[in-house]
Amino acid sequence: MSDFWLYALLLAAVIVLALAFYAGKLLKQVTQQKEQQHQAQIKHQQALNKHDKKVLDSVLLITRAMQQEQCEFDEGCWRLSVLLSSLKTMTEMPVKFPGIYGLYNAIKDLAIRDARKTLTKKERMREDYKRMTALNNMHDKVVADLDGLHQFTAEQLTRLAA
C-alpha cells in the first residue's frame, strides 16, 4: 500500500510540474503579446504623428502666405479647413479657429474651377457677391485666427519633433 501512495505522490508531482511549466509558457506568451501590442501602438502613434507633422508643415506654409497676403483668404481658409480636419491626433479645430472655419462654411458650396466655368455670368456674379460678402464679414476673425493658428502650429510642430 505504501508503494501506491509513493507512485500517486510522484504522479501528482509530475502533473503539478507539467501544469506549472505550461502556466509559465502561457505567461511568457501573454507577456510577448503585450509587448507586441505596445510596439504596435508606438508605431501607430508614430505614423499618426508623422502624418500630422506633414499636415502642420503645410498649414504653417499657408498661414504665412495668408499673413503676407500671398494667398487669397477664401482659398487659404478652404485649404486650411481641409488640412486641419485631416489631423489625426488633434480635434476640435473648428472651435479653436472659428473665423477660418466660418469663412470656409460660408463659401464651401460655391462653384470652383470647371464648375465655375459652366455658370452663367449672372450666376458667377451672384457667387462672387456671396464670396465677397463672406470675406468682408469674416476678415477680422480670419486675421485673428491666423495669428493663433501660426502660434498653435509652431507649438505642435515643436511637440511632434520632441
Rank of each mutant, 00 (worst) to 15 (best):
M1F: 02
F4R: 14
A8N: 07
L10Q: 14
L11Y: 00
L11F: 02
L11P: 00
L17M: 10
A20D: 06
A20K: 05
G24S: 11
L26E: 09
K28P: 03
K28M: 04
K28F: 03
Q29K: 14
Q29M: 08
Q29V: 13
T31N: 09
T31A: 12
Q33I: 11
Q36M: 12
Q36H: 08
Q37L: 14
Q37W: 09
H38V: 10
H38E: 13
H38S: 15
H38W: 10
H38A: 14
Q39I: 12
Q39P: 09
Q41R: 09
I42V: 15
K43L: 12
K43R: 15
K43Q: 15
K43V: 12
K43M: 10
H44L: 15
Q46V: 09
Q46T: 13
A47M: 13
L48S: 13
L48I: 11
K50W: 02
K50R: 15
D52V: 11
K53D: 14
K53C: 13
V55W: 08
L56M: 07
S58C: 04
S58L: 07
S58G: 11
V59H: 01
L60E: 13
I62N: 05
T63C: 08
M66A: 15
Q67E: 14
Q68V: 04
Q68T: 11
Q68M: 09
E69V: 06
C71Q: 14
F73I: 10
D74N: 11
D74K: 10
D74M: 06
E75L: 13
E75K: 11
G76Q: 04
W78R: 08
R79I: 01
R79Q: 08
R79E: 05
L80E: 10
V82C: 04
T89K: 00
M90Q: 05
M90F: 01
T91E: 08
M93G: 03
F97L: 04
F97G: 08
P98V: 06
P98D: 05
I100W: 02
Y101G: 10
G102M: 04
N105K: 13
I107Y: 05
I107A: 06
D109H: 06
L110K: 10
A111Y: 05
I112Y: 10
I112K: 14
I112R: 15
R113K: 06
R113M: 05
R113S: 07
A115C: 00
R116S: 04
K117G: 03
T118A: 14
L119R: 15
T120F: 01
K121Q: 07
K121W: 02
E123Q: 12
E123Y: 00
M125C: 06
R126T: 12
D128Q: 13
Y129S: 15
Y129W: 14
K130L: 09
K130S: 06
M132F: 04
T133P: 05
T133F: 09
T133K: 09
A134K: 08
A134Q: 12
A134I: 09
A134N: 14
L135R: 12
N136R: 11
N137Y: 05
N137T: 08
M138Q: 07
H139I: 01
H139C: 01
D140L: 02
D140K: 03
K141P: 01
K141V: 01
V142M: 01
V142D: 01
V143N: 00
A144H: 02
D145C: 03
D147K: 02
G148R: 04
L149R: 02
H150Y: 03
F152C: 00
F152D: 01
T153N: 08
T153A: 05
T153L: 05
A154S: 15
E155R: 13
E155N: 14
Q156A: 03
R159I: 13
A162F: 00
